[in-house]
Simulated scan of single mutants.
Amino acid sequence: MTHTLGLAPRPGAASRPRRVLAQASFEVRTTLRHGEQLLITAILPALFLVVLARTEVFTLPVSGGQERIDLVAPGVLALAVLSSAFTGPAIATGFDRRAGALRLLATTPLGRGGLLAGRILGVGFIQVLQVALLASLAVTLGWRPPLAGAALGALPFAAGTAAFTALAMLVAGTLRTEAVLAGSNLLWVLMAIGGGVLLPTGSRWLPSAALGDGLRAAMSLEVATVAVCTAILIGWAGVLTAGALRWFRWH
């Protein structure tokens, strides 16, 4: 067969970066089209932000000279990390595992590493959208965070994302799908309300409390507290990642 214009077919898989980006794009589209995940990742955090910042329904531990929005906004951003890095990936991975999609994708050129990389990258894309949406809403409500605080907050934000993504993989890779769905939603509620995410609890050894306290401290430029919280989150990320690698089941 003669090929025109000097072009020849190029059979084979796409390059690894293209495969990972394609998987990440698929993860983002799936999340944005899924009503329950959209509710947890965007609608509920925005609702918490407005209700806690603009109503007197709940009494907040606001210190002298601090506005309600100054306390609420970092907590809502921490809640966004919890939603995008834990609840959404845990549910999606659990259903993919039950349907056999994980086992199938593991045998494709994407591979297990590419699948996990694409899922993690997809979480990152969702978080960019979350931060843009929630930070814009908070600024509209009167939040004026220092630029240095935003840069400092990237440390607990990234460490928290790693810790909760590892927790999502551990839960989704070891429990039955029904237990993943119920457990991830229950943990989201418990960590959001009583786990130190939205409001400080006084103890930051839980990953949820370390994340919330770390972001609140960053916006107050409390460098020492941010360092401690980030270290705690990195420790949790290491332990949970080791557990996920040890016990994760692909089928």
Rank of each mutant, 00 (worst) to 15 (best):
T161M: 13
I43C: 10
A231C: 00
F125Y: 07
F157R: 10
G122Q: 13
L82R: 11
S184N: 00
L105F: 15
A237N: 06
A14Y: 15
L82Y: 00
R216H: 00
G214I: 01
R249M: 07
S220V: 04
T241I: 01
S25R: 02
L115M: 11
L167P: 08
T177D: 10
L206I: 00
A92L: 14
T2F: 08
A168T: 07
T201D: 03
T161D: 05
R103Q: 14
V197S: 01
L71M: 04
A90C: 08
L44P: 06
I193F: 15
T177Y: 00
L167C: 04
I120A: 15
E222K: 06
G12L: 12
L39A: 12
P89R: 13
T201K: 07
S15C: 02
G100P: 11
I91D: 13
F95I: 05
A158S: 12
L79S: 07
A90E: 10
A73I: 06
T107W: 12
L240T: 05
G160M: 03
A150M: 02
V76S: 02
V62A: 13
R216T: 01
R33K: 12
L21G: 04
G65A: 06
W250L: 14
L190K: 08
F48L: 08
H34Y: 09
A179W: 14
A80C: 12
A162T: 04
V189W: 09
L39W: 06
I43M: 09
L211T: 04
E67R: 15
A148N: 10
P61H: 06
L52K: 01
T230I: 03
R249I: 04
A80T: 12
S63L: 02
S184A: 10
F26A: 11
E27R: 03
G114V: 09
H3K: 03
L181D: 11
A166I: 05
V228F: 06
A162H: 07
L32G: 10
S15Q: 13
R112A: 11
L198G: 09
T41Q: 05
T55H: 12
T140H: 13
G122F: 12
I234E: 02
R112I: 13
V139R: 15
I69T: 05
A42F: 14
H251S: 14
V180Y: 12
H251P: 07
G114A: 15
F26S: 08
T225D: 07
A159L: 02
V72L: 07
A224T: 09
P200S: 05
T55Q: 03
A158E: 04
W205T: 10
G183C: 08
A227K: 10
L115F: 14
R103D: 13
G12N: 11
L5P: 00
V62H: 11
T87D: 03
G196L: 05
G118N: 00
E178L: 01
P11F: 15
G111D: 11
A242V: 01
T174A: 10
L133W: 11
P17H: 13
E67F: 11
V51L: 12
G153Y: 02
V72M: 06
H34W: 07
W143E: 02
L116Q: 05
P146T: 03
I91T: 12
L175S: 00
I234T: 08
S63C: 00
I69Q: 03
L39Y: 14
L47S: 09
L211N: 04
I193V: 05
